[in-house]
Simulated scan of single mutants.
Amino acid sequence: MKLISVVTGCFNEEDNVDALYARIREQFERLPAYDYEHIFIDNASTDSTVARIKAIAADDKRVKLIVNTRNFGHIRSPTHALLQARGEAVIAMASDLQEPPELIPEFIARWEQGYRVVAGVKPSSAHTTAMTFVRRFFYATIGRISDTRLIPNFTGFGLYDREVIEIIRQMDDPYPYFRGLIADIGFAHAEVPFVQPRRSRGISKNNFYTLYDMAILGITSHSKVPIRLATMAGFALSALSLLVAIAYLIYKLVSWEQFSVGIAPVVIGFFFFASVQLFFIGILGEYIAAIHTQVLKRPLVVEKERVNFSPVDE
């Protein structure tokens, strides 16, 4: 029997882990030709999430648990869990039930057709119109400026062949932009569309900072356009400033007595160029921060404990 690994990251999801486990188990009961393991990785939840998963794992040895020493974030923690999976294929999904386990049979069917990557894409969702617009705008923007073609409306939910997981392991990226890595690897992929439902239990752990962090990580990891735009804008604004200075000089020489510059153009020009400089210094800082993270080479997570992992797994 082929072993399929299902990996779900969680943080304070006490209201969802039982239902998630039951729905995943139900899908594999309909797939008798496959065995599976379900790996939860918990980012140091402060509610009863860990206790609930341990109770599930006590009754079902296919359920495994990794508990982190602290919250290592929604980027590093799921990637670490993927690298611990033993399956011939690995399915990654969130634990908030907004990525439906009912797509698992279709993922496996497309994998059996020869696709090493099967991506769950969400062309539409039950989110607010404003949030949907923001997401589409971001995906469209990063898709245009990226060095590699990213999968539109793809957030990481999908199935990955063992070969893909081993390539990611070799990359050894301490802060990976996962959907960018998948595009960078370059395997032909299948897309399975779905409508993302609203969260029915608990509250979202995403906020402005986490969304901004993900966006900046995607841009700095897979595009040189912003930093080159800064260079080109610097040349363009320097040329414009020189032309304006020459024009003012000529105007002053021609109309020496009548021409008076005044303070307003000086103040406006000062604040304009100061804001432009600060903006591009910020872009430069983001790239330097990304390099700094790569150079540190810290582990993805530090584990506190494991449940139901055999010595061979560890």
Rank of each mutant, 00 (worst) to 15 (best):
M1G: 14
A92D: 03
I151M: 12
L103F: 06
M1H: 13
G202I: 03
Q98A: 05
L278W: 13
F137Y: 15
F178W: 04
T69W: 00
R23M: 07
S238L: 13
V295H: 07
A245C: 07
E257D: 10
A57Q: 08
I263L: 13
S5K: 08
Y160L: 12
V307Q: 06
V302Q: 12
E303Y: 03
S275M: 12
I39C: 07
I283N: 04
T129K: 15
N12S: 03
R306C: 01
L284M: 08
I4M: 08
A236I: 10
M232V: 10
S275Y: 07
F273M: 09
A239C: 11
F280Q: 05
D35N: 15
F178D: 00
G143W: 08
L65V: 01
S310F: 06
F208E: 11
D313K: 02
I142H: 07
T8G: 03
R110W: 03
P123N: 08
G143N: 10
D313H: 09
Y212H: 10
N43Y: 02
Y177R: 02
G156H: 06
K64P: 02
P311E: 12
V121E: 05
I182C: 02
P193L: 07
I291F: 07
G186A: 08
A85G: 12
I227Y: 00
I288Q: 12
F107A: 03
K61M: 01
R70I: 05
T155N: 10
A89G: 08
I165M: 11
R169W: 02
L65F: 00
F133W: 11
K297L: 04
R136Q: 14
P197G: 09
F138W: 13
F259S: 10
R52F: 03
V295C: 02
T8H: 02
L31Q: 10
H292C: 00
L3H: 09
I145Y: 06
E305N: 05
I185H: 07
I246S: 08
H189Q: 13
D96H: 02
F270A: 10
T293V: 02
R198L: 12
